[in-house]
Structure formats: C-alpha cells, structure tokens
C-alpha cells in the first residue's frame, strides 16, 4: 500500500490499451516497468569510467564524493529525443494537448478528428488516471485510439508515449494527438518527444489561470482559448488572459475557438497543417 495516499499498489501501474469497437478492455495490460525493462546499459557503462561505482569495504567513516553533474530528467529527455526522431522519420506530427480537466480537450479532439476524416489519418492517445470514457468518445468518431491509464501518475512521460505509440502503430504522415492527463502542473516538465505543445484554457475558468500556472504556459507553442461561444454568459476578461499568456510565452500563438460551435477551428487546422 502506498504510504502517501493509502491507495493500493495493486493495479496502480501504467496500463496501455488499444480501444476496440466493443469497448472491452482486452487483457493487454502493461505495468509500466514490466513491458519496458529499464535498459541502463549505455549510461552505466559510461559512468563507471569515471566513478568507480563500487566503494571498497569501508573501514573508516570517511566518505568519498562522486561527481555526477547530470540532468535529473536526462532519462526522460533521452527517451523523448528517441520518440521525436522516430516520429520525424515517419513524417508523423504528434501534438501534446494539456489543460485542466473540463477545458474541452476531448470535445476539441472529436471535432478535429471529424474535420480530418478522409483528409489525413488522425489517431489519438488518451492519458487519464482511470477509465476509458474519453477513449470511447474518440473511438466513436472512427479514429484509432489507445488509452493510457496512469493510475496514480499525474502526467504522461516519454516512456509511456513510446509504449502508446507502439500499441497505436500510427501510419506514416499521420497526425497523432496525445491528450495528456488533465492537470496544468505536472505535464509541464515532461518532454514526450512531441512535435508541438498545445495548452487549452476555456472561458469558464479564471482568466488569471496563466499567472497561476506559469510553468505550463511557458512551454506552449500554441494556446487555445476554448468555449468562446460562452463569453456573453460568463465574466471572463479575455484581454487580461491573453496579456498574461503573452508575458509568459511571447512566442506562443494564441487562437480563440469554440470546439462545440466550430468558431476558430479552421485556423486551428491551418496551424496544424503548417507543422
């Protein structure tokens, strides 16, 4: 049992599943570690050149300092670079979609997948802590979809994306949307190897959200302001929100859209096609 939240360790590993027409979890669960053994050969080999990993049996209380000088996320970043390379080789565009829960990511995906029907093959990797509900919604559009359930995990990482891509098997030149776990904090730090990072915020949230979650907005290539059809009914200061985004990430494109009514979705597609 986990000592922080008391959840059961059983079943809390990452599970990656191709979602079929019949919506049944076919028995194909991959605990995060089992299917992708942690392969440490190169790095360990290099390191031992310097470090003399095995301390001789200590007879005195002295300690010895071993310099490591490495990025904490080096392993994730290495796997992300491998994902990126593989995607580029196959002409696949991968979009990492990040937002709070309820911003309209899945609805946006449904509209986008339908818009590309017959134009470009579009596939989806859904990240959620639990359930297949979003994957089933996407599956209903006819798109191929893989569900990654992170269990206790609060973000996708590059290793999970590698597993998801293996299961999804996207064809060359396709468009893959990766719906990250709904959370504006944790996914900010993890490069998946995506082509571009898109952050979605909706007008039913606070306009000051970019200031509250600056790390997320600073990583965005594009910010979508969603649900703009609801602006007449909510108290949302668009200029405040856009100003904060520009301060945090001057290079990000910003588009105002309504995933349900279709406003701005043409520009969204134009942006995607230019990647």
């Amino acid at each position: 049992m986990c000592s922080t939240c008391g959840c059961s360790g059983e079943g809390s590993g990452t599970r990656i599943s191709l979602v079929t027409e019949h919506d049944q979890p076919h028995d194909h669960e991959h605990p995060h570690d089992a299917d992708h053994p942690h392969d440490h050969e190169h790095e360990a080999g290099e390191a031992h050149g310097h470090g003399h990993g095995h301390a001789p049996a200590a007879t005195v209380e002295e300690t010895r300092t071993i310099l490591l000088e490495q990025e904490i996320l080096a392993k994730n970043d290495g796997l992300a670079a491998a994902n990126r390379h593989r995607l580029q080789e196959h002409g696949i565009t991968a979009i990492n979609l990040m937002s709070s829960p309820g911003s309209g990511k899945t609805t946006l995906l449904e509209s986008t997948v339908r818009a590309y029907a017959g134009v470009r093959e579009t596939l989806v990797i859904e990240g959620d802590q639990e359930t297949w509900l979003d994957a089933q919604r996407i599956r209903a559009t006819g798109s191929r979809v893989v569900q990654i359930n992170t269990g206790a995990g609060c973000h996708l990482d590059a290793q999970m994306l590698a597993g998801g891509l293996k299961e999804l098997a996207p064809p060359d030149n396709s468009l893959v949307f990766v719906e990250n776990v709904g959370n504006l904090v944790c996914p900010a730090l993890f490069d998946l190897g995506e082509t571009a990072r898109v952050v979605i915020i909706s007008v039913t949230e606070g306009a000051d959200k970019p200031a509250k979650y600056p790390y997320m907005f600073r990583t965005a290539d594009l910010v979508l302001l969603n649900k703009i059809d609801l602006l007449p009914y909510v108290d949302f200061d668009v200029e405040l929100c856009l100003g904060l985004i520009r301060q945090l990430q001057p290079e990000a494109r910003i588009l105002q859209v309504s995933a349900t009514k279709g406003d701005g979705l043409g520009e969204w597609q134009t942006w995607l096609d230019a990647l």
């Binding site: 986990c2 605990p31 269990g151 730090l189 993890f190």
Partner: peptide, 21 residues
C-alpha cells in the same frame, strides 16, 4: 502489478525523485 515500484502520486516531484534515485 506495479513491478514492485512504489506508486504514490499527485505531484510531479515524486517522478522527479524517482528519476534521481
């Protein structure tokens, strides 16, 4: 399941610390 790995969650700091260890 879980490969013997401790699974606690909700914060990215956990994943950071796992990477360190």
């Amino acid at each position: 399941m879980g490969g013997g790995r401790l699974s606690v969650g909700g914060v990215h700091e956990l994943a950071i610390v796992e990477s360190v260890v």
